[in-house]
Amino acid sequence: MDTCNIVENIYLLAIITALSVLQNVFFALKVDKECTSHNAHATAVQRVCCANRNCVDSYPTFMAVMWCAGVCLNQAPAAFAGLLYLVVRHKYFIGYMGQTSQSTPGYLFGKRILFFLVLMCLIGILNYLLTRYFGSDYRETVETFTSAASTLLLIP
């Protein structure tokens, strides 16, 4: 397998990873701005810090399942779900800055996206094991199903 072929299989995941890093920088700048503001209220600082901490806590899980789903199964639906997760995480962060109740829809939607990515990981690993030990390859069928199912993530 040459380098060009490897990059073709992961470039969407790399783009989403780069976007997530930029988003983390944005969150850190927001926290820094809120903490150094002259008219900072203690509750606003606490909300921003808590939102940032919650996003940072879920970040390794998101990265692991997105990359596992993309490499083990199909990068396109995994990257699409990753992009949706970044949008939802941004909505969660901004909602948490206002009132904590405004962040609930983003939190619930993010959980659903993570569940989809975990499911993709498990299916990809199961398909690999079936192919390796039983000679039954369902990759094409599963890729078609996950590509179609990823659009269902848009339904609130």
Score class of each variant (00 low, 15 high):
residue 87 V to Y: 11
residue 92 Y to I: 04
residue 81 A to R: 03
residue 102 Q to N: 13
residue 73 L to K: 07
residue 63 M to L: 10
residue 76 A to P: 02
residue 68 C to G: 13
residue 52 N to T: 13
residue 91 K to L: 11
residue 59 Y to S: 06
residue 73 L to D: 01
residue 100 T to L: 15
residue 74 N to V: 02
residue 95 G to Q: 02
residue 85 Y to P: 08
residue 60 P to C: 01
residue 70 G to Q: 04
residue 55 C to W: 04
residue 99 Q to G: 11
residue 88 V to T: 14
residue 72 C to Y: 09
residue 93 F to E: 11
residue 98 G to W: 09
residue 99 Q to N: 11
residue 70 G to N: 00
residue 92 Y to V: 08
residue 64 A to N: 01
residue 68 C to R: 00
residue 80 F to Y: 09
residue 101 S to N: 14
residue 85 Y to T: 04
residue 68 C to F: 11
residue 79 A to D: 03
residue 65 V to L: 14
residue 50 C to D: 14
residue 86 L to R: 06
residue 68 C to L: 07
residue 83 L to A: 06
residue 92 Y to R: 03
residue 80 F to Q: 00
residue 51 A to H: 09
residue 84 L to M: 05
residue 97 M to A: 07
residue 64 A to C: 11
residue 64 A to T: 03
residue 89 R to N: 08
residue 52 N to W: 11
residue 94 I to N: 09
residue 90 H to W: 12
residue 66 M to V: 07
residue 82 G to D: 02
residue 91 K to I: 02
residue 58 S to P: 06
residue 53 R to D: 12
residue 61 T to G: 15
residue 57 D to N: 05
residue 65 V to M: 06
residue 63 M to C: 00
residue 96 Y to R: 08
residue 100 T to H: 15
residue 57 D to E: 10
residue 68 C to Y: 08
residue 85 Y to V: 07
residue 60 P to V: 01
residue 66 M to D: 06
residue 65 V to S: 04
residue 50 C to M: 10
residue 93 F to L: 01
residue 68 C to K: 00
residue 71 V to K: 01
residue 60 P to Y: 05
residue 98 G to S: 12
residue 92 Y to T: 05
residue 75 Q to V: 01
residue 66 M to Y: 06
residue 56 V to E: 04
residue 60 P to W: 05
residue 56 V to F: 00
residue 70 G to L: 01
residue 52 N to D: 12
residue 67 W to S: 08
residue 81 A to W: 06
residue 101 S to C: 13
residue 81 A to G: 04
residue 60 P to H: 07
residue 99 Q to P: 03
residue 86 L to C: 03
residue 103 S to Q: 15
residue 85 Y to K: 06
residue 67 W to A: 01
residue 50 C to F: 15
residue 88 V to H: 08
residue 93 F to V: 10
residue 99 Q to T: 04
residue 101 S to A: 14
residue 96 Y to Q: 09
residue 55 C to D: 09
residue 77 P to K: 15
residue 72 C to W: 11
residue 56 V to P: 03
residue 98 G to Y: 05
residue 76 A to E: 12
residue 74 N to A: 10
residue 90 H to G: 12
residue 99 Q to S: 15
residue 58 S to I: 10
residue 66 M to P: 05
residue 86 L to W: 04
residue 55 C to M: 08
residue 51 A to Y: 10
residue 71 V to Y: 11
residue 64 A to Y: 02
residue 67 W to K: 00
residue 71 V to M: 11
residue 100 T to S: 15
residue 75 Q to W: 10
residue 74 N to C: 07
